[in-house]
Amino acid sequence: MPATGTALHWQLDAPYTARHVLIILALLVVILFTGHRTEMDKMVVMSAQAVGNLVGVVDDSQVVRGLSRVGQSMWPPVMGEKEEIARLPNLDKNNLPWFSYIEVQERIEQRLNPQTLQMEKETERLEYLVQPVGYLWTVLIKMIETFEIAIWGTLLSIIVSAPLAYYAARNYSPNGTTYTLARGTISLLRSAPELIVALFLVLAYGFGPIAGVLALGLHAAGFLGKFYAEDIENADKKPQEALEAIGAGKLKTLWYGVMPQVMPQYIAYSMYILDRNLRMATVIGLVGAGGIGQELKGRFDMFQYGHVATILLAIFIAVFLLDQFSARLRAKLI
């Protein structure tokens, strides 16, 4: 028997109530409705067919057919280049590019001789310049160009977002107006999709990397500004109080009381943006903003899927290498 005066009519908050069940039911209805509209039901059926086809239960599957067609046309990835020498007026035969050789092919053609009115066989000698890793080289150069776009985009975003972050941090912004303005700018930058921005910038600056760098940089500045500002707001208040107490001034307090504490996070964010910019730089080339994307689109439009395969592999390897590098950098800095 509990002692008198002990309060008993209380309980820990229940993890769920009838209201939660209702909300979940309502969500379920919405999900089923939108699922039909986004053809999720069809997706399940087609995927099941594909699996059935692979294990040999179902005869035909649209998905497997499509994938295998793409796979066949993409295999093997193109590495070399072969060009008719007649089309290369500037080629010096005594001084060929590295790793290349000349291949001679004989082509036999049937021709009608106008004098004898007989079909005659005619051999034609064709010389080709073969570069066994020529296309790999082209892709590498394009990939480096893409990297440069990504790096400059990241640099631009850091430069733009650093002052924005200062004004967008509630505890450092001079007043409410600057805070709102900075926050608004950051949201605006972040809300504009890179591809669309790049499309407009290509119209403004012409085809090439300028549009790419600007599009990536401005969009990423929206991200970095938000993250940087929130880190400033959440940083340990104690060293800031100590510097404020002696009248150090806001900028110096930020530099000595906040920056050393948030630096590892800042580097992590910036590395993520570099990673993201590298991936996006391959995409925005599609609208003509420079880099490997332009090459990818060209090959895609010419149905040269072997070349497309090489480019996709190159992108994958580049992203993977960057990931390894950033992991090491982070481990070193923390």
Binding site: D236, K238, P239, I246, Y256
Partner: peptide
């Protein structure tokens, strides 16, 4: 301060010199 209020990730030199910031 009770909790020292140093910038933990900064060097001792930086913390001492930050007393001069004003």
């Amino acid at each position: 301060h009770q909790h020292f209020n140093l910038t933990n990730r900064m060097s001792v030199a930086g913390n001492v010199l930050s007393g001069l910031l004003p």
